[in-house]
């Protein structure tokens, strides 16, 4: 059992009192590095994607920071997509993603922008290709390397089924978008997860969509290794970070991961 930490228990009440007193305290949890966090190896990773990428973020942050990189989690639950498509929800979410990306580029100055294809990259193949190329240009203009990584296999429930075609075409368009770009790379995560969300290899949570701690640690290990090759840094040994405090992240509680 974790020792009682009265301060952390009182935090909600303190926050509310502070907010009521006009102190401007925010109840939104901090979810990434400080804007100018130091990177011992000079690598600064901006991590983008939806809530699937969000569930991977705590482990990835632990892994990359243990390796000396700076990390900022820019994922967005229920959004984070760069492909606007024609659906009002994805259009609005994509607008937010591009706006936030601009702010993060200016404030965090990433050397790597990593985007995991989201479950909301609904659009025609042409729209997907255009959005991923725009992302590559944005990264290039910021002097950063772009890494596009495919999403893990996830359960196509009744919500996602109407957009299955777009979900299937997105990885291909991502690979095509960066094919001739020397500063951008597409990573196929199926070598880690496989292609079947229900298989043990996919390591999905009960919802069939997100990962729990073990899956997120597996991704951080795999992705950290690939990123190390691209950005020329040595990833940390998982033994140094994989069982850290990040495993208690609220995201995993919400997912019923334990």
């Amino acid at each position: 059992m974790q020792p009682t930490n009265l301060t952390s228990r009182l935090a909600p009440a303190i926050l509310l009192v502070a907010a009521l007193a006009g102190c401007g305290a925010s109840a939104t949890p901090s979810s990434g590095a400080s804007p100018r966090a130091a990177a011992a190896n000079g690598v600064r990773v901006l991590w983008m994607g939806d809530s699937i990428a969000g569930a991977q973020a705590p482990a990835l942050k632990a892994a990359l920071e243990a390796g000396g990189a700076a990390f900022k989690d820019a994922t967005s639950d229920g959004g984070g997509n760069v492909v606007a498509g024609d659906h009002p929800v994805t259009t609005m979410a994509a607008k937010d993603t591009w706006k936030t990306l601009g702010e993060n580029v200016a404030a965090f100055r990433p050397t790597v922008i990593a985007y995991q294809i989201t479950t909301y990259d609904w659009g025609t193949p042409a729209q997907q290709l255009s959005a991923y190329r725009k992302l590559a240009r944005t990264a290039g203009d910021a002097g950063a390397r772009l890494v596009l990584v495919s999403a893990p296999p996830f359960k196509l429930d009744e919500f996602y089924r109407p957009y299955e075609k777009a979900i299937r075409s997105a990885p291909e368009m991502a690979a095509k978008a960066v094919k001739s770009d020397t500063r951008a790379r597409y990573l196929d995560a199926s070598e880690l997860w496989g292609d079947d969300y229900a298989a043990a290899k996919a390591q999905r949570a009960k919802d069939g969509i997100h990962s729990c701690q073990q899956g997120s640690a597996a991704f951080a290990t795999w992705f950290g290794g690939r990123l190390g090759e691209l950005a020329r840094f040595t990833p940390a040994d998982p033994a140094t970070w994989a069982t850290g405090r990040w495993t208690g992240d609220e995201r995993f509680v919400k997912l019923g991961c334990g």
Binding site: M1, Q2, T4, A63, C212, Q213, Q214, A217, A218, T221, W222, G224, G225, G228, P235, A236, D237, P238, A239, A242, T243, R245, W246, T247, G248, D249, F252, V253, C257, G258
Partner: peptide, 20 residues
Amino acid sequence: AIPWPQPGAGTVDVSRLGTP
């Protein structure tokens, strides 16, 4: 006074992660 559980404890088996 109620003992708070430590969420996430024991959820990662490092031996299954391999090397980066």
